[in-house]
């Protein structure tokens, strides 16, 4: 049995939005201490890795490790039915073939007096559409709760079932790496740079020197360059630009994929870029204290 409740269900909505254009199918791997997703895009150029720690959920139970294979587009369609303020509970049986998703609105709790409810449950003289009748229709189980002083009646609860699938996931082992360059910057600013650079070309060079981080693109229209300098003392944490550099690094990447990564911008105010010569870049969006979504992108190499 797996069951996890996220008060801020919006995180789950945004996570699926952030990966569904990149990967079609993936496994949600559930364990004692986290739920995680690792999947590559079809052309094996990029990889997305999600981790949400169990401590970030307000209820988390996972009796044994489970892999829940899902279609990202379909899950995205269902999650669109959840409001941004809804809490989302995920539930799956150990040997089930579906994932149940329960959406609860922020003001769903209503307290009803047991006696009043008991009359309603017996089908008494409640006029149609009255509060009592509504309770009765929504959850008949309350009739079994005799002897309990109060009832919590849930008016606004939606339950969806997503069909699961068996997915042969091709997992990659990603070694712990000390990167030569770590850049932390506002996620919105990174998104704007990627969007603007795409107008000019399809390959972005990211070059980190003492001067700062230079994003450059060359195309038929012309060239574009944006220089970001360290700004570690900005008033707000999220406006800070912090650059740690052991040695200068310059790499080039396909803008098309970087653009997919920026779909995660809403998940947090900050993005962290990790680079070393001749290895994939890591574009990480921390998700509060809950976890992260990381994207890996293989560089383009000069022939």
């Amino acid at each position: 049995m797996f069951e996890a409740r996220l008060t801020s269900g919006k995180i789950l909505k945004q996570l699926i939005e952030a990966l569904k254009d990149l990967v079609q199918e993936a496994n949600i791997d559930c364990s004692d201490d986290e739920i995680s997703i690792q999947a590559m895009d079809n052309s094996h150029v990029s990889l997305v890795a999600v981790s949400l720690r169990s401590g970030g959920f307000d209820h988390f139970r996972c009796d044994r490790p489970l892999s829940l294979g899902f279609n990202a587009t379909n899950m995205g369609k269902i999650l669109k039915c959840a409001g941004n303020e809804d809490a989302i509970t995920l539930k799956a049986e150990d040997d089930g073939d579906s994932l149940s998703m329960v959406f609860e609105g922020p003001n769903q709790d209503r307290i009803a007096d047991f006696g009043e409810f008991a009359r309603g449950a017996r089908g008494s003289d409640s006029p149609p559409g009255s509060r009592r009748e509504k309770c009765w229709k929504i959850d008949f189980n309350f009739a079994t709760m005799r002897g309990v002083g109060v009832l919590v009646v849930i008016f606004d609860r939606k339950i969806y079932e997503l069909k699961l699938m068996d997915i042969d996931s091709e997992q990659l082992g990603i070694p712990d790496t000390d990167y030569k360059v770590t850049i932390q910057m506002p996620s919105g600013e990174f998104q704007r740079i990627i969007r603007d650079m795409q107008v000019l070309g399809d390959t972005l060079s990211i070059s980190c020197t003492k001067e700062g981080v230079k994003f450059g693109v060359q195309g038929d229209l012309g060239t574009g360059n944006v220089l970001i300098r360290q700004n570690a003392h900005a008033e707000k944490d999220e406006d800070r630009v912090m650059i740690e550099m052991e040695e200068p690094v310059e790499l080039t990447f396909a803008l098309r994929y970087l653009n997919f990564f920026t779909k995660a911008t809403n998940l947090g105010p900050t993005v962290i870029l990790n680079m070393s010569p001749d290895v994939p870049i890591v574009v990480e969006y921390p998700i509060g204290e809950t976890g992260h979504i990381k994207y890996y992108l293989a560089p383009k190499i000069d022939e």
């Binding site: 070694p175 994939p280 560089p299 383009k300 000069d302």
Partner: peptide, 14 residues
């Protein structure tokens, strides 16, 4: 000209 590399060139599959 530059060539797009694949992730398997850097990470082991398991």
């Amino acid at each position: 000209t530059s060539t797009q590399t694949r992730l398997e060139s850097y990470f082991m599959r398991y």
